[in-house]
C-alpha cells in the first residue's frame, strides 16, 4: 500500500519581511501552478498569538503534513504556544529562510 500523500501547509509570514520575499512568492506560485490541494495561512505567529482555533485543525488527523514556513524549532513551539501538540513523527517542516524555493518545491510537489 502506498504511503498517504502529505498535506501541505504554507505560511505566508505576512506580518514581517523575515522570510525572503522571492522564496515565499516562488513557493506559492508553484503551489498554485500545481494540481495539489493545500492550506495556506497568513501568519502562523499571529495565529499562535491569538490562539486562533483554526491552528488546532491544521495538524488534526493522522496524515503526514509538510509545513512550509521557517525554522523547525520555531514552528514546533509556536504550535505548542497555541496549545496544540506537535506530532513530530508525521510533520516535516521546510524552512523558507534557509532553503531555496526550488529545494522546497522538489520535496513538496514530488
Amino acid at each position: 500500500m502506498s504511503e498517504p500523500k502529505p498535506r501541505i501547509l504554507y505560511c505566508r509570514c505576512a506580518f514581517a519581511q523575515t522570510v525572503p520575499k522571492a522564496t515565499k512568492d516562488e513557493v506559492l506560485d508553484q503551489l498554485c501552478e500545481s494540481g495539489e490541494s493545500f492550506d495556506t495561512v497568513s501568519d502562523l505567529c499571529e495565529m499562535s498569538a491569538r490562539k486562533d482555533p483554526r491552528i488546532t485543525e491544521l495538524l488534526e488527523g493522522d496524515e503526514p503534513v509538510q509545513i512550509v514556513a521557517c525554522y523547525h524549532r520555531a514552528v514546533k513551539w509556536l504550535f505548542h504556544s497555541a496549545g496544540v501538540d506537535f506530532p513530530e513523527d508525521r510533520v516535516e517542516v521546510l524552512n523558507m529562510r534557509e532553503e531555496s524555493a526550488e529545494e522546497i518545491c522538489k520535496k513538496v510537489l514530488k
Binding site: R12, C32, T40, S42, M47
Partner: peptide
C-alpha cells in the same frame, strides 16, 4: 494572504 486571510485550495 497578504490581507490576513487563511486560504485553502480544494481540488
Amino acid at each position: 494572504l497578504d490581507k490576513g486571510y487563511s486560504v485553502t485550495r480544494v481540488t
